[in-house]
Design a protein around this nucleic acid. Structure first.
Lengths: 150, 150
DNA sequence: TGCTGATCGTCAGTACAGCTGACGGTCAGG
DNA sequence: CCTGACCGTCAGCTGTACTGACGATCAGCA
């Protein structure tokens, strides 16, 4: 058993929610100068990582709904960081790719976010930080891509 | 292989968000039979843990806004799990306390939630599970005690 | 060739948590 | 008293994500 009778501060739900909140806060502060937020940086990373992809593929890799991805890409396109291009062999799809500005922003924003993560992990030490990251990975993507958003 | 420090799935923001989401999902499934959700269980825990408290104190301990606490208590009161009572010495305050049904529900719902947490932590083993919990505590709780793997 | 079912991007409508700003009612100090 | 602070409450706004539907397109099959 999880010992210590009660204490809401020990519940995993509480801890995860607040950890996520704090990380989001630090990330926002770090990313503001580049005009993107954490979710948008995620999109840029996914687009940069694997080669030409449809909107839906990007959405699946991030675990967000395809309808959410539409708005996400709208703002990124408006900022000039990504571009939609018709798929050469399937006219239902849009191929999403980074612009020059997008690549540039990705580079710098990632560095800033790395610094935010280091600040977040500061209380843990290097070993504890690695353990936390590994544990989260193990818990989040054990069975392939989990299918969080459908 | 998409390892290395690029890859959106390695970002802490992503991992925390999805971990929190998965835990919430498991919790919801576990708690549904008792008619409460994770946030409500948190409220019950806080009320049970420390003795007579105002709504505001409960809200602060959970890190939620006092205006949010109003609605939260409304539903719990409607379910007959908590009761508002006037504070004997300060008529601005409501003292919040558990009813008999509240205590009963707290007991059983906590057990169910514990099972959900064990399921969530299953991929980690007992040692890894403890490390994760400690790491989250260290990162979330305001620089109180910690000294994890320092 | 034409039909049928599935897929993609899009959009409107909905739901929900959480916040802001304001309000009466109350307390404490001078 | 009277002023300022506090408590609980409520209306209203925000941000986020989902549902359900639509037109356009593709693939399979007779």
């Amino acid at each position: 058993m999880v010992s210590s009778g009660h204490a809401a501060s020990g519940r995993l739900g509480y801890l995860l929610k607040h950890a996520q909140y704090r990380m989001a806060e630090l990330n926002e502060k770090a990313l503001t100068p580049f005009g993107v937020d954490g979710r948008e940086l995620g999109v840029l990373l996914v687009i940069a990582g694997h080669e030409p992809q449809s909107q839906q593929q990007v959405a699946q890799r991030l675990g967000v709904d395809r309808t959410t991805m539409v708005a996400l890409l709208d703002t990124l396109e408006r900022k000039g960081l990504v571009a939609r291009r018709p798929h050469p062999e399937d006219r239902r799809r849009n191929v999403v790719e980074l612009t020059g500005a997008g690549t540039e922003t990705l580079e710098r924003a990632t560095e800033a976010s790395d610094r935010a993560e280091r600040e977040f992990l500061a209380p843990l030490g290097e070993r504890g930080a690695r353990q936390l990251r590994d544990a989260l990975r193990a818990v989040v993507l054990p069975e392939g891509q989990s299918s969080i958003g459908r």
